[in-house]
Amino acid sequence: TEEYEYTDEQQAREAAREWREKGYTVTIEEHNGRWRVKTG
């Protein structure tokens, strides 16, 4: 599992979409105004 943090929701969603296209399972969670994208 890798985790990436973004301050911008749009960036987080874009990144998540790219990971999904590569076949990863992706979770996005908002935490204190930051967006965490977890792949695994």
Rank of each mutant, 00 (worst) to 15 (best):
Y4I: 08
W35G: 00
D8K: 04
Y6H: 03
E9V: 08
D8V: 05
K38T: 13
R34I: 12
A16Y: 07
T39F: 15
T27V: 13
N32R: 04
A12Q: 00
D8H: 06
T25G: 06
E29W: 09
R34P: 00
T25M: 12
T1C: 11
Y6Q: 01
E30L: 11
E2Q: 15
Q10W: 13
H31Q: 09
R20L: 15
K22D: 04
H31S: 10
Q11W: 05
T39K: 12
T25L: 12
R34G: 07
G23W: 02
R20K: 10
T39S: 06
H31K: 11
Y24S: 03
R13C: 08
R13Y: 09
W19C: 06
Y4S: 06
H31F: 12
D8P: 01
T39I: 15
E30M: 12
E18A: 12
A12E: 00
E3M: 14
E30K: 10
G33A: 02
Y4D: 05
T1I: 14
R36S: 08
E2G: 14
T7Y: 12
G40S: 15
Q11K: 11
E21K: 08
A15N: 04
R13A: 09
T25Q: 13
K22R: 09
Q11E: 14
R34V: 09
Y24M: 08
V37I: 10
G40H: 15
E9D: 03
G40E: 15
T27R: 05
T39V: 15
E18Y: 14
T25D: 12
T39A: 11
Y24D: 02
E21G: 04
E21T: 05
T27K: 07
T7H: 10
E29G: 05
E21A: 06
E29L: 09
N32G: 09
G23L: 02
W19S: 04
E5I: 13
Q11G: 07
Y24Q: 04
T27H: 09
W35I: 03
E9P: 07
E3Q: 10
V26K: 00
W35S: 01
E14F: 03
E14C: 09
R34Q: 08
V37N: 01
E18S: 11
E3H: 10
E21Q: 06
A15Q: 07
I28W: 02
W19K: 05
E2N: 14
V37D: 00
R34K: 14
Y24C: 06
R20I: 15
Q10P: 06
G40R: 14
R34N: 08
E21V: 04
Y24K: 05
A12K: 00
T39M: 14
Y24G: 03
E9L: 12
K22E: 05
T27I: 13
E21Y: 03
Q11S: 14
G23K: 02
R17Q: 13
A16W: 04
T27W: 08
E30P: 07
R36E: 04
W19I: 06
V26M: 02
T27D: 07
N32L: 06
H31E: 11
W35T: 01
E21H: 04
D8N: 13
R20V: 13
Y6C: 04
K22P: 01
V37M: 03
R36V: 15
G40T: 15
W19T: 02
Y4V: 08
E18F: 11
E30T: 07
R17D: 12
Y6N: 01
E9M: 07
E29N: 06
V26G: 01
A12V: 03
T7N: 14
D8Y: 06
W19G: 03
T1E: 13
E3K: 07
V26C: 07
Y4C: 10
T27C: 09
E29Y: 13
I28M: 07
D8S: 13
E2D: 12
T7G: 11
Y24P: 01
Y4K: 08
Q10A: 14
R13N: 10
Q10E: 13
T1A: 13
V37Q: 00
A12F: 01
E5M: 11
G33E: 03
E5A: 06
G40Y: 12
W35C: 01
G23V: 00
E14T: 10
H31R: 10
R34D: 03
G23Y: 02
G23P: 00
V26I: 05
N32F: 05
Y24W: 08
T27Y: 09
T1S: 13
V26R: 00
G33C: 04
A15F: 05
E18D: 11
W19E: 03
A15I: 07
G40P: 05
Y24A: 04
R13Q: 12
T7I: 12
Y24V: 07
T39L: 15
Q10H: 12
G33S: 03
N32Q: 05
K22M: 09
A12G: 02
T7F: 12
V26Y: 02
R36M: 13
R34W: 05
E29T: 12
A16F: 06
T1Y: 15
E14N: 11
A16P: 00
N32K: 08
E14L: 06
E18L: 12
E14S: 10
Y4P: 04
E30H: 10
V37F: 02
A12L: 02
E9H: 06
Y24F: 12
E3S: 12
R36A: 06
H31M: 10
E14I: 11
K22N: 06
T1H: 14
T7K: 10
G40V: 15
Y4E: 07
H31T: 10
T1V: 14
E14A: 12
W19M: 12
K38L: 10
K38E: 05
E18V: 11
D8Q: 06
T39Y: 10
E5H: 09
K38M: 08
